[in-house]
Amino acid sequence: MKRPAPRIDLFDVRPDDERAFVFAQDVRVIEALLFATPGPVTQAMMKPHLSKGADVEALMAALVQDYAPRGVNVLRIAGGWMLRTAPDLAPVLADQIPEQRKLSRAAVEVLAIIAYHQPVTRAEIEEIRGVSTSRGTLDVLLETGWIRMRGRRRTPGRPVTYGTTGDFLVHFGLDSIQDLPGLDELKGAGLLDGRIPPGFSIPSPSDDLEPLEDEEPLDAEPLDFMLVSPPSDDETGP
């Protein structure tokens, strides 16, 4: 049976307490990785730098607990962990954060549809919205890095399918796409009208990287021309 993680002061460990000392050193290594890495740090990224047999879940539980009362928290995001500002301090730092480009209402609607219905085509987005969707709206979302072209639907015309990215999860502080709010949460936040039509439901989103049965990978786009290096002065003809 695996022994529980030791309850220790991470900053007051004696070297002669070998188990606690190794645990504390592993925590320090993870802390350094979180500080130095701009994106989520996964278990696979941590393992090569930790002691043999290190229990990553126990290490992260200790680090999360240690950072909980601080101005920076350790959060589970996009399948890994990141250092993020404590939520209650967001108003204090509002003036220090560069203002990001605001999305239009159409772009927000399209982003929500892609997040919940992915993989989804442009025609399917338009069917859900009930209005046409300009290519420019999709281009804006592609530029943000929050959506990607997943593949092509195995239907006539082979339309492109869209899905969200890891950057989408990071920006919105989600560990996985399944953490998107459900029907009850959306109603509680006032984002859905109380008079919901019978049979209305929120789909269960999935951002599986593998193509679905009705999808195929995107083809590599052929080049319009071939780049050929010009002959050097010392080359001679046949």
Results as ranks from 00 to 15, higher is better:
Ala189Val: 05
Arg195Tyr: 13
Leu212Met: 00
Leu183His: 15
Thr137Leu: 05
Asp193Trp: 12
Arg122Glu: 11
Ile202His: 04
Pro119Tyr: 01
Ser204Asp: 04
Val160Gly: 07
Ile147Asp: 09
Gly182Leu: 08
Leu141Ser: 02
Leu141Arg: 09
Glu124Asn: 04
Asp193Glu: 14
Gly163Cys: 03
Val131Tyr: 15
Leu180Tyr: 07
Gly166Ser: 11
Glu127Tyr: 14
Pro119Gln: 04
Trp146Ala: 04
Val160Asn: 10
Phe200Gly: 08
Gly136Arg: 15
Glu213Cys: 09
Thr121Tyr: 11
Asp139Tyr: 13
Pro159Thr: 05
Leu138Asn: 07
Thr165His: 13
Glu127Ile: 06
Leu141Pro: 00
Arg150Tyr: 10
Pro197Tyr: 15
Asp175Trp: 05
Leu186Val: 06
Asp193Met: 14
Ile128Val: 10
Pro159Gln: 12
Pro159Ala: 12
Leu191Cys: 09
Ala189Lys: 13
Leu141Lys: 08
Leu141Trp: 08
Val120Gly: 07
Val160Phe: 06
Ile202Gln: 03
Glu185Ile: 00
Ile125Glu: 04
Thr165Tyr: 12
Arg195Lys: 15
Gly182Ala: 05
Pro181Ser: 03
Ser201Asp: 12
Ser204Thr: 03
Gly130Leu: 04
Val120Trp: 06
Val170Met: 11
Leu183Pro: 02
Pro211Asp: 07
Leu192Thr: 01
Ser201Leu: 03
Leu142Ser: 06
Phe172Leu: 13
Leu183Glu: 13
Asp184Ser: 10
Val160Glu: 07
Val120Ser: 08
Met149Thr: 05
Pro181Leu: 01
Glu213Ala: 14
Tyr162Gln: 05
Asp207Phe: 02
Glu210Thr: 10
Arg158Tyr: 12
Ser176Leu: 00
Gly182Tyr: 08
Val120Thr: 06
Pro197Glu: 14
Val170Gln: 13
Thr133Asn: 09
Pro119Val: 01
Arg152Ala: 00
Gly151Phe: 07
